[in-house]
Design a protein around this nucleic acid. Structure first.
Lengths: 174, 174
DNA sequence: GTATATTGTTATATCGATAAAACATTTGAT
DNA sequence: ATCAAATGTTTTATCGATATAACAATATAC
């Protein structure tokens, strides 16, 4: 538990850096080019900050420039963007269609964790969602059953699942 | 997507701050007291850093001191710790027993996202895990079916689920 | 009860993300 | 081609997390 804390923060790319890459990707898709000012507007930060962060991403090999100094994603950059977009997509679907959370909550939570999930977890989650949403009889029956189900720990007792006094029993989940 | 980015980082407590609270909690459980040096050792950081961060947490009302200046969690602090521990427990169980991920992966990913999940998502996830692991016939059948199932996007085609070229199809997930 | 060791605190410094402002360069309009 | 506007870069500063190191306060050993 504690021993993972430091490793937790050891990433080649920061959350912020990833969002710069996503922004460049979005802009390239949307308009075919991405300049500093465009990234600044999209992320709602200053041109100065963009200039600084993008040059770091360039020196790390995630971003390149074309002859007009417009940004391009390198292969390495594209790989990161692809990976993160897939993870977001999967968590988003999981939250919305499995857990049936409101879109706003699903999207906020997806944004927070998208880049943190390991490849393995994302792949398994994809597999799970694939099965859950499939036409299989078991999946269909399971979905129906879950609709009617609401797990609530007995107030005052230990939660059967998490084996400790239940936090959720004491709080309004509205 | 982009509009959530800034909000994503607006938290009363930082990830780091939460881990200080968890450390104090762990120490109180383990030895009955928590001093600066204990937190420093547990988190593998210096006494100086602990001193600074803990005083911030004190002024924010998460930590108090007894007469010997040993740390205590305030009600507010306990609430945060409880909430995070529950979220970790739930994600941990989900990763291990639903997704069947190896413990190491499950724990690493839980640590990364535990504090980021909204209350609503955690509550729904708990509910889901409760149903999935239950004795209901549908749940049992579903679990059996999922064991044999492995979703794999067709290479070169768009993934049915995520509606874009599949990242996982191209990568070794070992 | 003094000397030593342990613990806590307070500079000072670095790193990453950011802002604001000054400055530099490029683009565009006429 | 010139001037104004837009864009990019650099500087200075803040904030949060951290480290080191100096210093202060406590504990502990003898």
């Amino acid at each position: 538990m504690v021993q993972t804390w430091k490793k937790c923060n050891e990433n080649e790319l920061t959350h912020s850096g990833i969002h710069y890459l996503l922004a460049v990707h979005t802009l390239l898709e949307r308009s075919g080019y991405a300049r500093g000012i465009d990234v600044a507007r999209l992320l709602d930060i200053t041109r100065g900050s963009v200039s600084i962060t993008i040059s770091k991403l360039k020196s790390k090999g995630y971003i390149a420039e074309d002859m007009n100094k417009f940004y391009q994603l390198t292969e390495k950059g594209k790989e990161v963007v692809n990976s993160v977009l897939h993870k977001r997509r999967i968590t988003d679907i999981f939250f919305k269609h499995v857990l049936q959370l409101p879109d706003s909550v699903a999207e906020a939570d997806s944004c927070k964790i998208e880049h943190l999930l390991s490849k393995q977890t994302a792949a398994k989650l994809l597999s799970f969602v694939g099965y859950f949403l499939s036409d299989n009889n078991e999946a269909t029956a399971f979905r129906k059953g879950f609709e009617k189900f609401y797990y609530k720990c007995q107030s005052g007792e230990n939660c059967q699942i998490c084996d400790m006094e239940c936090f959720f029993a004491k709080h309004d989940m509205s």
